[in-house]
Design a protein around this nucleic acid. Sequence first.
DNA 1: CTGGGGAAGGGGCCC
DNA 2: TGGGCCCCTTCCCCA
Length: 591
Amino acid sequence: MDAMRHMLPRLQLTVPMPMKTGKVAMSPGEDGLIGIPFPEHSNELLSHLNDQRRTGLLCDLTLTSRGTHYPTHRSVMAAVSVYFRRLFGTEEGGGEGGGGFRVCQLDCVAPDALDALLEFAYTATLTIPSSGMRDVLRGAQLLGIQCVADACRDILGETAEAEGETAEEQRAQHIVTERMMERERGVEKGSRRKTDRKKVKKVGSHHISSLVLNPSPASPASYPSPASDSFRSLPSTQPPSPEQEELCLKSGQNGDPRAIRESVRGATLNGGHLHFLHQRPHIAHPPPVPSSNDKLSEDDEMESFGDDGMLMESTSIPTSVAERGAAASAAGGGRKRKSQTPQQCPVCQKIIHGAGKLPRHMRTHTGEKPFQCSACGVRFTRNDKLKIHMRKHTGERPYPCPHCPARFLHSYDLKNHLSLHSGARPFECPLCHKAFAREDHLQRHRKGHSCLELRTRRPRRGPELGDDGRGDGAGSKQSNPLESLSLQAHSSAFLPRTVLDGGSGSGAGHPLIFPGDGERERSLALQALAQFAPSRLASYPGLFLRGLELRGGREAEGEDPGGTHSPAARRDRWADEVEEEIGEEEAEEEE
DNA sequence: CTGGGGAAGGGGCCC
DNA sequence: TGGGCCCCTTCCCCA
């Protein structure tokens, strides 16, 4: 995310762009580059693609599963699936341009699971019935949608070390995987040249033996592995209709969770499955071989869902958590650790600190509100919130202001209030130097546009401004492009969360959750809750999986696993950003 | 746009 | 380990 934060201001914009507010931001200077973020762009883009998929518009790939057809886009599938990425990646240059429709038969993936995976691909939301979890997991593994597979495993409470797979099995599967992939590539290439396709046996029973039904010449294990780990079985081609080319995925042991786990483990042991280690600091079941897998091969990125390098770098604590988990696992031989502090939320990947806090956090996903006000019936997720709420009924305002008759419900309200008496405004905008009594007001100020105009007048400000020792250097050139840079930097430092953190802001910011599908949204969380606090699920007979939000940003960053949650740390970070902004100004000025 | 109140959610401490 | 309690930050809403 930081990378994006730094990147955005450098994006060039030459035309007025409509802002979310409806206003139009003009490029402040012809020679200045300004980056204007469009937080909703990615969401809208995906949404439009999903619309196209639903209407079959521009679909150049059809996935089929047991008779059900799913029109889709190759580009999207390649973006979300390692399998398709590799598959289509072999078609460089020619691609599907002349191939027309292509059909990929994935009978080994249950239709519901395939549908869920497609929904995920186009919405970043995974909605599946709990009963279909394994199917989705298997499908995700087959297609190389690692993040989904990880999440499913989290929910299922399966661990890589839980299975009893032998190394031989893993190697065998890996080899088969490689072979199948190699053959697949060959077929893909050949399919563009020939109208007739190889007849490939379609396997309805997903047994591992089917994997070797169509052995192809062994190829070097050239595929790095997240793909191969997911590709414990790989598609083979099949002549469908004359104009279609079909691919058939053959899975391993159908429905056998062990098989799934085995594939996971195999991948890990085979040197792949790197995301599992880095991007998902799994607490409950860390991968057994972390160090040797630290490097992602170039095209193994699954970070299209926000798990980027920055994320990896920022998850030091989760990593340590995972290591601790591994240690505990090794020591106790346990399969899953139900609870440990800190814990990672299987839904949003957020690291929750504090013993017993995860169930509390999970209620934010499930929507469960077990605490009801006896007076007005309002429900709350937490008992302490209910307690505070009750003060409204009792009239209790336990926090009186010592300077005036005002009384408050919350201590922090009193704190805010006291700042009025003291006149303290400790939160100063480093750019326009307007001071605020509350930090959130400063943030709001910075997010808004008001500061921009002030900023243009800043250069003449006096020496009391700490950063103006250098900043005023910039200020002396207020007419130069620096100002635009300042503006952009200023704005960029407080980009909406949807931009900076991958849309992980509060509820409204979650993009791509199907509206009106609230029940389904809860599913994954409920599943997770079933794992962490099963007793709480008694009242949730129907479990659906809530979307994997797969946030790239804040949550994925472990929600400040490094302790930057502290106000001081946050301010430090913020100050760093400001310094960077100013540094950019200076650099620009020198030019 | 700003000030202020309130809600929501997370973390720390303690039992 | 889970829960209670408290404090904190962030966000939303309203005047």
